[in-house]
Design a protein around this nucleic acid. Structure first.
Length: 248
DNA sequence: AGCAATTCCCGAGCAAGCAC
DNA sequence: GTGCTTGCTCGGGAATTGCT
């Protein structure tokens, strides 16, 4: 081996197998069929096993100009929702040979700083949950592909968007409540300027104001049990007819 | 001595080309 | 045509060279 003090490289594997470094690259990259014999390929694999060879990712990234890494930007880690987003993203990414780096932006939903010296050099793409597209300018630049989850599709030019079917969800919820006879409904809304929350409130207002005899009130609270309890108590102790249903 | 410019190096992948 | 090698490439930092 050329440098016994460092981990083996593809050249070391090549030397051990009696082939060129290029042959090692072809075999271990599974691109050898038709260019390398089965016997030689097996010799290369055996040498790699014997040396406990693992590719140097830094060198691979340097050569290819790709890192097979995407950044998932979320505004906070305090909500379980984002844990689910990360788990799903990581699972699908792994199926495609990509890794996901989670970045809870210290700025919340505001303009996110680049967590690397140059994210464009370190990443192949950006996923963002519950952020605005223009808050990602510093990270994304004009080059990195961007997929937005839970974000206004009309304000994300050049980005793909994945959103919940909010209108249908609200339709099902309101149909259910109205079907049970409820007419005074309290919307316990998150005090966060998120596209999803705003779309939900808008859709709720639209549906209930077009249903005669209904009354919709809104209480805003931070996303926390304590905050929700305080806001709910305040709403329920307000003079006047109490709501018979709470939607949160 | 101090600075700028140039060369080398790292590891892996790929196109082109060689030997049979 | 098959099986394989050669030579080049990538970005950034270290080392070397050249010049004032």
């Amino acid at each position: 081996m050329a440098r016994s003090s460092t981990r083996p490289t593809s050249r070391d594997v090549a030397h051990a197998a009696g082939v060129s470094q290029a042959a090692v690259s072809l075999v271990l990259g599974d691109k050898w069929r038709g260019r390398v014999s089965e016997a030689t390929a097996e010799r290369v694999r055996e040498a790699a096993r014997a040396l406990d060879y693992r590719p140097n990712l830094a060198a691979r990234n340097l050569r290819l100009g790709r890192t097979r890494t995407v950044l998932l930007v979320v505004p906070a880690l305090t909500t379980e929702f984002f844990a689910g987003v990360y788990t799903g993203a990581a699972r699908v990414a792994a199926q495609h040979g990509f890794g996901v780096v989670l970045y809870p932006s210290p700025e919340g939903i505001g303009p996110a700083r680049d967590p690397f010296a140059s994210a464009q050099a370190a990443l192949d793409g950006v996923l963002a949950s519950s952020m605005a597209a223009d808050a990602l300018t510093a990270i994304r630049g004009d080059r990195l592909p961007l997929v937005m989850l839970d974000s206004d599709p009309t304000a994300s030019p050049g980005a793909a968007t994945v959103n919940l079917d909010i209108a249908d969800g609200i339709r099902q919820v309101t149909d259910h409540l109205l079907g049970l006879g409820h007419r005074r409904i309290l919307h316990l809304a998150a005090d966060v300027p998120s596209w999803t929350f705003e779309a939900r409130a808008r859709e709720l207002t639209t549906r209930l104001t077009t249903t005669p005899g209904t009354q919709l009130s809104t209480a805003r609270a931070p996303i926390s049990i304590e905050g929700a309890r305080t806001a709910t108590e305040a709403a329920l102790t307000t003079p006047g007819p109490r709501p018979t249903a709470i939607l949160c």
